[in-house]
Design a protein around this nucleic acid. Structure first.
Lengths: 330, 330
DNA sequence: AGCTCGGGATCAGTATCGCTGATCTCTATT
DNA sequence: AATAGAGATCAGCGATACTGATCCCGAGCT
């Protein structure tokens, strides 16, 4: 370590409230609005920024004068990036200390994405509630699992489900389940005759895909590419059940993680096939948290419960079952 | 976003200097020593902590009374983790603003690890110096590339070479070169007869390995495991050249990245063989930086130079050359 | 042009805050 | 018991971070 003590004293006089002021200004593009946001008089904010600018030795805010909105200079932008992280971190610290104080009560902020919510979350939640009745679980749904990780990193979430499969610092995590990709077909599709699907047969086939920026979609796309075929995407859908309904109505096929398939929805009956053995594709669903943050006993218990539930879903079963009696529909 | 504005005002009155005080106490286990460290009187620190404790509503420091050293409570530990990151972040902000001000002068803190330093760094450095003479490059060597990434994350380094091959947030990076693993053999070793080495032949063979906690070593180990053999590690060495000398003196063989091999050291002549085609193993060497930090033009240029140099090293060549005239020694 | 208005800077004044230095208290040591 | 070392406490002062009033400036209106 080059030694953080000797160079820590350098940011002489920079204090949290200055950074908060900078953020408020960035947000509102106005000193006076920033002031009301922070509960100060306008002159206070004006002086705070002046002090901050003196402290760091840079002009941070561009004041065009007159009624025009103010903006950050490039130095201001640079500092702002750090400021947001610092205040976020402080918020996280507060949350941690609250959680510590709350003990077995308090809140647990959990992030989920669609297909985790569908199958994994309800049983986890209900079992968790039985054992930790005084914990309020606050759920937050995001479309992309990467966004959830970002929220955990920023301290806005205590736990998040993820399907990226990697727990790089500052994230720690546990793997819950390996979820194989399967093909959803209209029940009477000719491709449904086989016991499995070879991606090579998808040339020109009509497909319902996920959003282009989805990790799932990326995985599927690269697998298809690897197989050297070009199906045609006739529709993109964010929503698993929508996709399934589209498939059920015969519009095309879809390749989705098994957990995303709703087997028992009457009007969305589809046939599910595994992929050919040498083309097997899967995602690993896990749960992550921030290594630096206080991991309450409740959070710990939530993770344990999730692991337990995931084990109970019995991944070994499902693909076997589905591939046998491969047309599963009500 | 749940909105960082509404809950930002919660850490009422917590300021940077309080966190700095907490850190100093954690470091010294003493109020008075913390005070001299920070340049305050002892009473000041005492009051700062008191204020901080009042602000967060937790006892943070355990004062056993008398001459016994103080320690942090669990709440103190929790807060400390955040505090270190916050102050580190502030330091990074300072460094960024300095770099911004310095323009084409100033410092660039670059992290390296052994085998990157050996081959990639010198030409990069010399070319960089030609174009950016006023930039001081501060080098820092770490044994493990993961540690370097940690330093970049903490803002202690502006750039770092890496061999983990992944640029997960908050790190961004560029790939420089793919470095294949090769076998180093004593020149007269019977295994050196072949044009390549099949890991399957390593059962019981004496090996010089790397440290057990090294990523390189982990990769090699798992490849060997996959091949289903059990060589015997007779020695572990951190130092590439030491390893090579040990091999040269006939003590055993070693599997190392090609860039780690010193081809022209007189008293360390070894034979180098590629691995069998289906057992090819490589690492990807890249260079990383922090996505939130100010990426100066100099840093940008350094990356470009490194990419350029890496391209010039001509990875295509070397393995071919070595496998042909496979005994390379002076 | 001149006027007006919105928004930031400035300034005086004050209440607060944060530091120092001296003193007090406590506990382990002798 | 006396001592020494370490933190808490307190008075006091100097710095500072607010408020509120005022000034200043540029854009847009008439």
């Amino acid at each position: 370590m080059t030694d953080s003590i000797t160079n820590r004293d350098l940011p002489l006089g920079v204090e949290v409230r200055h950074l908060a002021a900078l953020e408020a200004i960035a947000l509102t593009s106005s000193f006076s609005q920033a002031a009301v946001l922070l509960g100060y008089a306008q002159s206070a904010v004006s002086q705070q920024i002046a002090t901050l600018e003196r402290a760091v030795g840079h002009k941070l805010v561009e004041r065009p004068g007159g009624p025009r909105p103010v903006s950050l200079t490039s130095a201001g932008e640079v500092l702002l990036r750090h400021a947001t992280h610092i205040t976020a971190r402080l918020g996280a610290a507060k949350a941690d200390l609250d959680a510590l104080a709350a003990g077995d009560a308090g809140a647990l902020r959990v992030g989920t994405f669609q297909s985790a919510s569908a199958r994994l979350l309800p049983p986890t939640l209900s079992r968790f509630r039985d054992n930790w009745p005084r914990i309020t679980v606050e759920l937050r749904n995001e479309r992309r699992s990467a966004d959830l990780e970002e929220l955990v990193r920023a301290g806005q979430l205590d736990l998040a489900f993820t399907d990226t499969g990697l727990f790089a610092a500052p994230l720690k995590g546990a793997e819950l389940i390996v979820d194989p990709y399967v093909v959803m077909l209209p029940p009477n599709d000719p491709l449904a005759e086989a016991d499995e699907l070879d991606l090579g047969r998808l040339d020109g086939v009509r497909m319902i895909s996920g959003s282009a920026d989805d990790t799932c979609e990326a995985r599927v796309f690269s697998a298809i590419e690897r197989a050297g075929v070009r199906p045609q995407t006739i529709f993109r859908s964010d929503d698993n059940l929508t996709t399934q309904r589209l498939v059920a109505s015969g519009m095309g096929i879809a390749i989705v993680p098994l957990l995303a398939v709703e087997l028992f929805v009457p009007d969305a009956a589809v046939t599910v096939l595994p992929l050919a053995p040498n083309q097997r594709l899967s995602r690993s669903i896990g749960i992550v948290w921030h290594e630096d943050r206080y991991h309450s006993r409740a959070a710990e218990a939530f993770v344990e419960t999730a692991i337990d539930v995931a084990g109970g879903i019995g991944l070994p079963h499902i693909p076997v079952i589905t591939s046998r009696q491969r047309s599963v529909l009500v």
